[in-house]
């Protein structure tokens, strides 16, 4: 990235924080009211304090562990279901209708189901995180697998390649660019759901801590939680994007924005 673009990005973030500080420090009331919101400096203070506590890091590790487990499971199951439904008509007929029926249900609405299904809260939260990411990954994989040019498969089959070779040597790598898109979307939904699930039924975790800060009217604490969620989400989706770019280096280089028409 060029220095100019880095500078622009930093300026955008600083501008956002500056505006927030201004609106809250001046307690602006113009239909929307900023007088109850903590200022950036108050939040920064609260964050500094919390960074020194073991509880903060425990919550962070707990949320990360949940999302990593749930998301990894969703990636495996989602790619598997996507490939299966795209490649086999029988599989599409067998699991397609059930998936389409469950898909519109928001994952967070599965909390009661999770509580009844699993002996421990913990497993329920991971289940909800997994369910949230599963559908975008499945749908993206299904479309990506269908879009793989048949000629790559034909080439491998006329070299004597069997089903396994076609699957792991053609279908999966060929669908990867689309799958990465699904993983990216899935991760975002996973974060929303892990935090919501923690708020509803957790005993640890960033979501739980954010909600309990709200219940004791610790508003800077609420914002520390929100900032933590934002940063964690940004870091993990950055990691997925980076991994995706590494794995799909063979794609034609995109035309940089601003070049050409």
């Amino acid at each position: 990235m060029t220095a100019r673009r880095r500078l622009l990005r930093a300026a955008a973030l600083l501008g956002f924080l500056g505006l927030w500080q201004l609106l809250t420090a001046l307690k602006v009331e113009a239909w929307v009211r900023f007088d109850h919101l903590p200022t950036v400096l108050q939040v920064a203070d609260a964050l500094r304090t919390q960074l020194g506590t073991a509880v903060y890091w425990q919550d962070l590790a707990e949320s990360l562990r949940r999302i990593c487990t749930g998301f990894a499971l969703a990636a495996l199951l989602g790619v598997g279901a996507g490939v299966l439904t795209a490649r086999s008509r029988t599989a599409a007929d067998l699991i397609g209708p059930v998936l389409e029926l469950i898909r519109p249900i928001p994952a967070i609405a599965l909390v009661p189901v999770a509580i009844m299904l699993f002996p421990e809260n913990e497993q329920g939260i991971v289940f909800i995180t997994c369910a949230a990411a599963f559908f975008p990954i499945t749908v993206a994989t299904r479309h990506a697998v269908r879009a793989v040019p048949p000629r790559w498969e034909e080439a491998v089959r006329t070299m004597g390649g069997g089903t396994g070779r076609v699957l792991f040597g053609v279908v999966l790598p060929g669908a990867l660019p689309g799958v990465v898109g699904g993983l990216s979307v899935g991760l975002g939904v996973s974060w929303i759901c892990v935090i919501s699930a923690e708020m509803v039924s957790g005993q640890y975790g960033v979501g739980y801590r954010t909600w309990s800060a709200y219940t004791v009217l610790d508003y800077p604490g609420v914002f520390v939680g929100m900032a933590t969620i934002g940063l964690l989400g940004w870091a993990t989706s950055g990691a997925v994007e980076l991994l995706g770019r590494r794995l799909t280096r063979w794609l034609p280089a995109p035309v940089p924005a601003g070049v050409g028409a």
């Binding site: 040019p149 000629r151 790559w152 080439a155 491998v156 040597g169 053609v170 790598p173 060929g174 990867l176 799909t248 063979w250 794609l251």
Partner: peptide, 8 residues
Amino acid sequence: EDGLLPWR
């Protein structure tokens, strides 16, 4: 054309 596997 495009018979080669582009990632290899």
